Simulated assay, not measured.
Amino acid sequence: MDAKLECKIREFYGFERLTLLDRLGGLSAVNLKVQLDAGLFVLKRFRSNNEEDVFRMEAVTALLDRSSLPVSLPLAGKGGALHFELDGRYHALFPFVEGMTLHEPSLTAPSLSSAAILLSQLHRVDVPQSVGLMSKGESRAPAEVFRDTARAFLARACAIPLEESTRNLIKQLIKAKVRMLAILSKARGSLGTPTARHLVHGDFHNENLIFDSEGNVVRVLDFEETHLNHRVRDVFSFINHACCNTGFGSANMEKATLFLRSYNAMYALTDQEVEGGAIGLIEGLCSSLFLERVVVDEGNAELISILERDLRKVNYFATHAETWISELRSAGK
């Protein structure tokens, strides 16, 4: 661990003993397992360096601290603040939680049901106006703007040294995304979007949940993206990243159906919400160049398999989107 970071942790929290044990998962954030005077903790360096995001996270922490939900919240420093800044990035300490993270093949009916029930409880948390938590609008660019951005990115990708197979994969994926977004722009215009606002996690999937040996969720992690929005954002985030991370075959769709039914049993979604959430999932997949940028700008070849997976997903939606949405809409009945 960087000596300056160690010094900052000791100063901010008042701990004397500090030992780095392990680097944990995280693509755009950094998570370190550390031993401190008071026990085991996870030091998280947040993705955002925006002060407004820190204010939002602190408001969310105060709100969730008053709830009965099993959530992992940051440790307060000596002065009561929950986050500290170092070299332009914000950090916080969280108690280390014992348990398991379950990957897609290991998700069972009890674990899917437990995740769905807990998510429905999060969405029912009352958010008083006094909390000052604002709604977060959609930030996706129109299809035409994304097309122009994608063209500029492809031109840059073609001008730097890359494996030819990687360059061709990126070309195929981006072209497929542009085509799919053109189709979605018409569907979105006719369908509209759900209008209700709920407290949403913002990154709800299996790797942000800790399970016990029986498949029950014992802790929810990572509230960095929590805000007010359409609750379907969380529901379909879980379907995409937990149930159908590797694709939309029958076994994965069975998990998606079970999760959706369990959620609906607690807090039913309307047909419009399901349709809007499904389209939002496809739109979110197709309107991001995040992974492509990491591969091109950082040379991270480990993400190539994920780009291949995303290409399969986009191609699937190009021919099966309507059937897929209909199947999910029926699943909640």
Rank of each mutant, 00 (worst) to 15 (best):
E11T: 10
F12T: 15
R17Y: 14
T19Q: 14
D22P: 00
A38V: 10
G39E: 05
L40F: 07
K44E: 05
N50W: 01
E52F: 06
A59E: 11
L64M: 08
L64T: 06
S68L: 10
L73Y: 02
F84V: 09
G88Q: 08
F94C: 02
L102C: 08
H103T: 15
E104R: 11
P105A: 11
T108Y: 01
I117C: 06
H123P: 03
V125I: 15
G132H: 05
G132V: 07
K136W: 10
A143W: 11
L154Q: 08
A155H: 14
P161L: 02
K171V: 13
L173G: 11
K177I: 02
I183F: 15
T193P: 00
D212E: 07
E214A: 13
G215E: 08
R219G: 10
T226N: 09
V232W: 01
V232M: 06
R233Q: 10
D234R: 10
H241L: 15
R261D: 01
N264C: 15
Q272N: 12
G280V: 02
L281E: 12
G284N: 14
L285I: 15
L285W: 07
S288D: 15
F290C: 00
E292S: 13
V294S: 00
V296S: 05
L307T: 08
K313C: 03
F317A: 05
E322S: 13
E322F: 06
L328N: 03
R329L: 15
